[in-house]
């Protein structure tokens, strides 16, 4: 197996739409698909939209950008997930969408 497979290449391309997460309480369902524009567009539905909506969108956007994706549309349905869960679900969706298991495990979280 290659040594490099756990490092993230510079910019990645989404090869297929993918999703991660469930609708269970405390979780967030992330669906990711390629976007037309060079931006990360996030559409959020959340049970705590008023109180944490801005924070959740920011967390999702940051996690997608850190993964190395620039053209993406995210549809998220949140059931009160904590930030660490959101980051994990976004990373999983990104991995699945780019058919890679690359991730920078050494990054400061």
């Amino acid at each position: 197996m290659e040594e490099k497979h756990s490092e993230v290449p510079r910019t990645m391309k989404i090869t297929m739409p993918a999703s991660a997460g469930t609708m269970e309480s405390g979780d967030i369902m992330i669906e990711i698909e390629p976007g037309e524009q060079r931006e990360v567009e996030v559409v959020l539905k959340s049970s705590v939209a008023n109180e944490f909506g801005k924070q959740i969108v920011a967390t999702i956007r940051r996690a997608v950008e850190e993964f190395g994706l620039e053209y993406a549309v995210i549809n998220a349905v949140d059931k009160g997930a904590l930030d660490c869960t959101i980051r994990a679900r976004v990373a999983a969706a990104c991995q699945r969408a780019t058919a890679s298991d690359g991730f920078d495990w050494g990054k400061r979280a």
Binding site: N50, E51, F52, L82
Partner: peptide, 9 residues
């Protein structure tokens, strides 16, 4: 743990 909630509108 949760982050600081925004004030309600």
């Amino acid at each position: 743990i949760t982050g600081k909630p925004d004030p309600l509108p």
